[in-house]
Design a protein around this nucleic acid. Sequence first.
RNA 1: GUGGGUGUAGCUCAGCUGGUUAGAGCACCAGGUUGUGGCCCUGGGGGCCAAGGGUUCAAAUCCCUUCACCCACCCCA
Length: 425
Amino acid sequence: MTSLPDIHRLQGTADLLPAESFQWAEAERVIRATMFRFGFGEIRFPVLEPTELFARGTGASTDIVQKEMYTLVDRGGRSLTLRPEGTPSVVRAYLEENLGSQRPVWKLFYLGPMFRAERPQKGRYRQFHQFGAEMIGAASPESDVELIALARTILHDLGLTGLRLQLNSIGSPAARHDHSEKLRAFLRQPDVYAKIDEDCRRRMETNPLRVFDCKNEECIRIMRHAPTIDQFLTAEDQDHFARVRSGLESLGISYELDPRMVRGLDYYTRTTFEFKTDLLGAQDTVCGGGRYDLLVETFGGPATPAVGFASGIERILAAAQEAGASQGTLPRLDVFVGALGDQARALIPSILARLRGLGFSADSDFLGRGLKAQMKEANRLAARLVLIVGDDEITRGQFTLRRMDEGGQAEIPADLAQWNKETFA
RNA sequence: GUGGGUGUAGCUCAGCUGGUUAGAGCACCAGGUUGUGGCCCUGGGGGCCAAGGGUUCAAAUCCCUUCACCCACCCCA
């Protein structure tokens, strides 16, 4: 089985072999292409960051910071953390590279691995991969709409259909704080408290908004009468939200209002959104995002509004597969060189070099096997052509070129210099 | 961190209430075609049945422990 009995892939991580990594490369290509079409440029930032970046950026009260970070101490005694999400790093770079003074608005995207020390399950991994986009410097409702449209376009381009867009506005931190307090007060009323279940009594203290998510029918009934966030939004918040909604409508993007939608990160303000699928089981959010108008300030920068989203590649690929989206297959090999005999085998390197120089993908057998085995190998590689080089061919000065789809064979000159693209078309 | 499920060949799995050398399909290798793939036929290599302990004349099968993986809760991509 294994010759490394004590060395294993870490829980919640994966090895991707060529058949699968090819799907990934395709997805990444699509993501970048669409990002560029929307005018977003790629930012690459470190996988390892100071722990304080996330403690302050993601938020000390979040589950991510409280129990899900891979944190280590380096030799200098510094606390470092494998990035659990991208947004704080983008904001750090924005400030560190002094981007705000160069242009009023920055549109950046990223793509890469993130790390969270959670118990793995379907659609949840300890090393997973996200792409995300951030527009920093714009406060307009149209920028919210632009980001939602961007996310939706990429998801569509990746073959995902039937997604539900859920939308909410959570106002300012002050409004949320107000709301939470009122919610607690509501839940503490004896006649209410008596009816909610144990989980919700716990949630009431830790995160009262979560009670809205309870699946218990009694809790759902009671929560219909609970105060919702929209009652705490300012007139400006409400106006912003109304303009986001009308912007989406003018684009024909349908959405569901979900006043109970809670996002797990501290920095969101006003608009929040999620794209969900019903193809994945419990972990059904494929993309989540929102506005974070105060985050730049919390790092000591100037008041700078921003909006962004992040999306999980594993979940997207799983959902696309579930939806029966066409899966790209590895490209076919153009020419397989089948050689027989020492004299012919000695020619393989220069033949391969010539074919590759002409722009063809070319491969050969390096085991010195018989022609039959080499033909099987060529078939496995889905080769279009097999160039057969044996003693006969060398004495005749003509190589045999077999077309694998039709089965026909032809002769081509043994002189490599006479070959051109048409020879192997 | 909590709950449930599953661990038998590279992969997907069978092996019922314990009984002689542990099976199938696929994959891999070889032969049928001493220089020709995909289909077919024949043969072959591969398993300390997750690990450790226990019960028994006898354990892949029953019991215990550990480990791993999966699903779910919490939360999120």
